[in-house]
């Protein structure tokens, strides 16, 4: 009685195959985009959106003299700790670069204003506090260094 007639073998197999294909495609797309820095809306080239510029007061810590790495984290986030390690290491290595971590759940105002969809999201701010690039997902160390290089220019 509990063996549902709702799914018969053939239809079930078709649903199974479609689900696995869709999940594989989604996974491959995700892996390609994950942790890549993209030029953010509101970047220096996009003067119209500078209203979304976060200040040191917003973020609860002073911005770096040359650049700032702003990391949005949350409790339900697997790669946030590894991201913190990478960013802290880079900030310690490069003079004038600050690393600020923001708890996304405590700052939903910022999450909405800056259009943060996932944790971790890393924003790279230049010396004026403009958002130059952003990455969602754990970024690679070399990419962080390159993004800082571009923001400092």
């Amino acid at each position: 009685m509990l063996d549902g007639a709702a799914i018969s073998g053939g239809a079930g197999a078709a649903v199974l195959a479609a689900t696995l294909v869709a999940a594989t495609a989604a996974g491959l797309l995700w892996r390609r985009a994950n942790g890549r820095f993209r030029r953010a809306a509101g970047s220096a080239a996009d003067e119209g959106e500078e209203a979304a510029m976060p200040t040191g007061t917003d973020l609860g810590a002073p911005l770096g003299e040359r650049a700032t790495l702003v990391q949005f984290s949350s409790a339900f986030c697997q790669p946030c700790r590894a991201t913190r390690r990478v960013l802290a290491e880079v900030a310690a290595m490069v003079d004038g670069v600050a690393h600020i971590e923001v708890d996304a759940e405590a700052r939903l105002d910022l999450v909405r204003a800056l259009d943060i969809m996932r944790t971790p999201t890393v924003l790279v701010l230049d010396s004026a506090g403009r958002i130059r690039t952003r990455a969602s997902g754990q970024p690679r160390r070399a990419d962080v260094i390159a993004a800082i290089g571009a923001a400092v220019d």
Binding site: L2, D3, G4, A5, I7, G9, G12, A13, L16
Partner: peptide
């Protein structure tokens, strides 16, 4: 996956 194939609620 086995649930989808068999439709087993158990």
């Amino acid at each position: 996956a086995a649930v989808l194939i068999t439709g087993s609620a158990w």
